[in-house]
């Protein structure tokens, strides 16, 4: 069985890590998560569970993490600051730790106007940097944000995200540095389609020495079709899909779209592996989790390490 803090061990022992994303269902059926977990098991070091991604209501990340944990996977609990204030966030941090979840990823969250409840009130009591700082303080100082003492500190490996493709570009490494300064131990990036820009971001990351203080995992998303590529480019916040990639996807016959997507994905993995400071990849195969084993296998990343 995978140890609960598998991801941290894989990374700290210097292995090239592989994580994957698992989107919970829009319903209460636990078998959806079990099926996705079953596909990923043995192929990844940890599984991120999204927290109502694109502000669409789904099964809770916490519950889905527990289902995965019971299957022997190491879940990464994604938590956005969009839907919970500091009281709820800290309460869930304690709860997650108590349930044996050992990884947390702190995010802002997509604005609710993108989701299925655009009339919802958002929270944003604290931001994602402050949330990272809060979890670190709870764990390392044994204190709540209020300064009051915690009896029974949470034990979590803290992650954050950064989007190298959002603007203004020149502060994107500085912002990652801010999150690492606040306590982030690993950074998972937005999907890399524009490898050249990503490499430039990594130059800034290295100049700031961020890669020596935190493990940086490059976000990888296989494209299913030219339509998906266009949708990602035009409708998903903060996504940079170069026109050349969209054209390349469109240049092959329809029945070859998925193969071409996987080929591009493998090329991207190869490219980011050769960038100094990249500690692993985070595969976000959106509603296409069954392709992950093939990608990991073809990328030559099997078998996954079993850390001591």
């Amino acid at each position: 069985m995978t140890p609960a803090n598998n991801l941290e061990r894989v990374l700290t022992q210097g292995n090239f890590a592989v994580t994957a994303e698992c989107g919970p269902p829009r319903g209460a059926d636990p078998d959806v998560i079990r099926k996705k977990g079953g596909l990923l098991k043995g192929h990844v070091d940890a599984v991120n569970v999204t927290d109502n991604q694109t502000a669409v209501v789904r099964m809770s990340s916490m519950a889905s993490c527990i289902i995965l944990k019971d299957m022997g996977l190491d879940p990464v609990l994604q938590m956005t600051v969009r839907d919970r204030n500091r009281i709820a966030l800290q309460s869930d941090v304690l709860g997650a730790s108590a349930l044996g979840i050992r990884n947390i990823l702190c995010l802002s969250g997509d604005h609710q106007s993108f989701g299925d409840h655009p009339g919802a009130k958002n929270v944003h009591d604290i931001d994602s940097v402050q949330f990272v700082d809060t979890v670190r303080m709870m764990r390392d100082e044994g204190k709540f944000l209020s300064g009051q003492e915690i009896k029974g500190r949470p034990d979590l490996f803290i992650g954050c995200v950064e989007n190298p493709f959002a603007d203004p570009f020149e502060i994107r490494a500085l912002r990652a540095a801010k999150k690492v300064k606040a306590g982030a131990q690993f950074v998972q990036t937005q999907c890399v389609f524009n490898v050249e820009k990503f490499a430039r971001w990594m130059e800034m990351v290295r100049a700031l020495g961020i890669h020596k203080k935190a493990h940086i995992l490059a976000g990888i998303t296989p494209l299913k079709s030219p339509g998906m590529a266009r949708y990602m480019k035009n409708s998903v916040p903060g996504m940079d899909v170069p026109d050349g990639l969209i054209e390349r996807m469109g240049s092959v016959p329809k029945e070859k779209h998925r193969d071409e997507g996987v080929t591009i994905c493998l090329e991207t993995i190869d490219a980011v592996r050769n960038i100094e400071g990249i500690a692993g990849i985070h595969i976000m195969a959106i509603e296409w989790e069954d392709i992950v084993p093939e990608i990991v296998k073809q990328a030559g990343l099997l078998p996954r390490p079993i850390p001591a």
Partner: peptide, 25 residues
């Protein structure tokens, strides 16, 4: 749009907010 004190979030693009292209970040 998210009242972020350590911004900008990952949705900032071309000077605009992720919520609306007409809204400055």
């Amino acid at each position: 749009a998210k009242s972020i004190m350590n911004g900008p979030c990952g949705g900032s693009h071309g000077g605009a907010c992720e919520v609306n292209d007409q809204l400055p970040c």
